[in-house]
Design a protein around this nucleic acid. Structure first.
Lengths: 209, 209, 209, 209
DNA sequence: TATGAATGAGATTTCATTCAT
DNA sequence: AATGAATGAAATCTCATTCAT
C-alpha cells in the first residue's frame, strides 16, 4: 500500500476547502494528470496554465476552482510523488555482502526505477526550482535527505572505517538518482538490467570492497 | 592555460559584430560577471535582464549592445565554462590501481572541485534548462558526454567484464558532479578532503574491487 | 405599517416571473438578508455573489433562480429601503418655531435615525454607485430629491427671505443624512440624544434665527 | 503656496524609487492627470488601467513603470489632494459674529468650493472606498477628522452651552462637503453665490443664534 | 427547487526587447 | 558607447453567469 493510495483516499478538496463530488474529483484528477504531462514536456517555469487546461480539455476558470495558483498545482503533484518516494525509502533493505543482500538491493533499485520512470519529470522539477527558492523546491531537500539517511542507516556491516557514512550514502544516492535521470530522459542507451547491474555492483563494491 | 583565456584572447565583439575598444571590453566583462552572479542567485528562468543590468550598474540599452538576447548572455557564460571543463576533461589521468594512480585521480578531482566551486551555478543552469529545450541546455549534454567518455577511456586496466564501461563511467561521473553540487550549494557539510576521499574510494572500489 | 410590508405583501417571484411557494419565499428572504449583510461589510462593488450565497448557505444556481443578476438583488434591497424612506418622508412634520414643532421634528429625526441604523449600509451603497452610473444609483437621487422637497415644503413660516429654500433644504437634509452616516459607522462617538439635539438645534437656528 | 506645490517640488520617482528625468516626469504627470479624469468618470472600482493608459496615450508597460498598481496611482492622487486639503484646513479662520468674521468664513468656503470643483472626484472616491477597506480609504478619515477639529477649534465665541462642539463641528463640516458634492456633480442647480450664502447663513445661525 | 461544477470574457501585471537622445 | 524611457505580447487570475443533474 503506497502513500499515494493513502493520499488519494483522503477526500480531495477545492482551493477553498470544500469537499468534492464525483465529477469534481474527476476534473481535478484530469488537471493533475495534465499538469504532470506538461511539466514533463516543458518544466516548471515554461509550463503555462494555458497548456495545462488545454491538455485537460478544461478552462482557466475551472483550473482556479481546484488550485489556487500554478504553483499550487505543482506543489500538489510534488506532494503526491514525495509521498510515494518517502514510502519507498522507508522500505529500503539493509545492504549486506551476501547474494541475498544484493538481491534485495537490486529489487529495491528496480522499484525505484519504476517510480522514476513514472514520476521522473516531477522529481526533476524539484531540482529546477530549488535554485529559485520556489515553494516547490522545498519538498526536494527533505526527500533527498531522507533517502540519504535511509541509505546511511542501511549500510550496517562492513565499512572501511575511514569514510564518513553520510557523505558516502549521499554519493551513492545521487548516483542512483542521476543515473535514472539520464536513463529515463536521454543519452544513455542502457537496458533496465544494465542499469541495475551497474548500480548494484558499484554500491556493493563501495561498501564491501 | 585554460580555454577561458583562449576564448577571451579572441577579440570580444558587440552584438552587431563590431570589435570592442577598451571601455567596451570592461562593460561587457561587468555584464558577464553580473550575469554569473544573478544566475547563481536565481537560476536561468527567474533571472531578469533587469537584475543583471542593475548588478552591473548598467542599463537595458547597454545590455543589448553586447548581447543579442538574454539567452545570448548565458550562452556566452556557458561557453566560457564549457571550455574550461573541456580542457580539464582532456587532462583526466588514466585511473590505475596504484597509489600513484589514486593520487593522480585525487588531484584531478581536486581541480574539478575548484572549477565547480567557481562555476557551479553556470554548470547547474545547464541542467535546469535541459528540460525546456533552451539553447543553453545543449552545451550540457556534450560536456557530460565528453566527461563520460573520458572517464570510460581512462578505465583501462581491471574491470570485471560484466559491466558496460559506458554506463559505469556515466554513473561515476554523475556522482562526481552531483556530490560537488550538494557540497557547493547546501546540505552536505563536508570538507574538501572528505569529499575527495569519498570519491576516490568509491571510484577505486568500483573499478578495482 | 412600513412600505417594506406592503412590498412583501405583493407576491415575490422568481427571476423568470413565476410566483413562489413557501420554501421559495424563505430561500429568497435568506438571500436578501445575506445580501444586506455583505453589502454592509464590503460595499456594492466588492460584494461577490459568492459571498452572498455562502452567507445564505445557498448556491450560485439558487441565486439566479431568484435574481436575474447581482445588480437585481441589490436593486430589490434598495427598493425595500427606498419604500420605507419614502413613507417616512411623507410623514415629515411642518417645522415651526415652537416647542411643539421642535418636538415633532425631533421625533421624526429619531425615526430617521432608527431607519438609518437598520438600513444605513443599503442607503450608503447608493452613494457609492452613483458615480459609476449603475442602476442601483438611480434610486438614490429620487429619494434624496424627495427628502429635500419634503424639507423645503415643511419650512413654511419664518425664513429670512434672502436664501433659496431648496438649497437650504438640501443643505439641512444632507447634514442629517451624513451625520447619521458618521454616527452609524465610525468616528463620531455620540449618543442618540446628542445627535438629535445637535440636529434639532442647527435646523431650528438655520430656519428661525 | 499650497502643499501640492511642495509635493511636486519633491522629485517624482519610479515605482522602484529611481529619480526621474524630464521626459519621465511628463509621462508620469500625464498618467496622473488621466487617472483623475477616469476616476471622475467611472469611480475607483470601475476604473480600468486600460482606460487610464488610453487617456494618457501611453501603454500598460509604461503605467507599471511609474505605479506599482492601480491602487498606487489613486493613492498618489489622493495624497496630492489630501495635502491641498490639509493646507486649506489649517487656514480656516476663526468664526466670529461680525461682518468681518462672516466675510472671512465666506472667503474660506469659496476656496473650499474651488478645491472641490477641481478635486471633487478624487475626494469622493475616498468615500467610495471607505467601505471596502481599501488603502485608498484610509486617507479620508484623517482629513475629515482634521477638518472637523479645525471647525471645532474655530468656533470660539458664542456657543449656547448645551451642544457638543465636536458633533456640531462635524455636522456643519459634512454639510459643507456634501453640499459642494451635490453642487459639483448634479441635481442642485445653484450658483456659487447661492451656495456660499446658504452655508455662511446656516453656519452663522447655528453658532450665534 | 436546489446545487455543485464549468465557463470565458476581461482585468491586472510582467518583462524581453526596441527607441530616442 | 551609454542610457532612461517606452512598448506590447503574453501570462496569471477573477468572477458573474450558465449548465447539468
Amino acid at each position: 500500500m503506497s502513500t499515494a493510495d493513502e493520499i488519494s483516499a483522503a477526500p480531495a478538496r477545492m482551493a477553498d476547502g470544500r469537499v468534492l463530488r464525483a465529477r469534481g474529483q474527476r476534473t481535478r484528477a484530469r488537471l493533475l494528470e495534465a499538469g504532470a504531462v506538461v511539466l514533463a514536456r516543458k518544466g516548471f517555469h515554461a509550463a503555462r496554465v494555458d497548456d495545462v487546461v488545454e491538455a485537460a480539455h478544461s478552462s482557466h476558470g475551472t483550473f482556479y476552482l481546484y488550485f489556487s495558483s500554478k504553483e499550487d498545482l505543482f506543489d500538489q503533484l510534488v506532494a503526491q510523488v514525495a509521498g510515494d518516494l518517502a514510502t519507498l525509502v522507508t522500505e529500503m533493505p539493509v545492504i549486506t555482502d551476501t547474494d541475498k543482500g544484493r538481491d534485495a538491493l537490486r529489487q529495491w533499485l528496480d522499484r525505484f526505477a519504476d517510480l522514476y520512470e513514472r514520476s521522473g519529470p516531477v522529481i526533476r522539477s524539484w531540482t529546477e526550482s530549488e535554485l529559485s527558492g520556489d515553494s516547490i523546491g522545498r519538498h526536494g531537500e527533505d526527500v533527498l535527505g531522507a533517502m540519504t539517511s535511509a541509505m546511511t542507516r542501511n549500510i550496517r556491516p562492513a565499512r572501511r572505517a575511514r569514510l564518513d557514512p553520510t557523505v558516502t550514502g549521499l554519493a551513492l544516492m545521487v548516483m542512483v538518482e542521476r543515473l535514472n535521470y539520464y536513463a529515463t530522459t536521454r543519452q544513455v542507451v542502457a537496458t533496465r538490467d544494465e542499469l541495475l547491474d551497474t548500480l548494484v555492483e558499484v554500491i556493493s563494491s563501495a561498501l564491501f570492497a
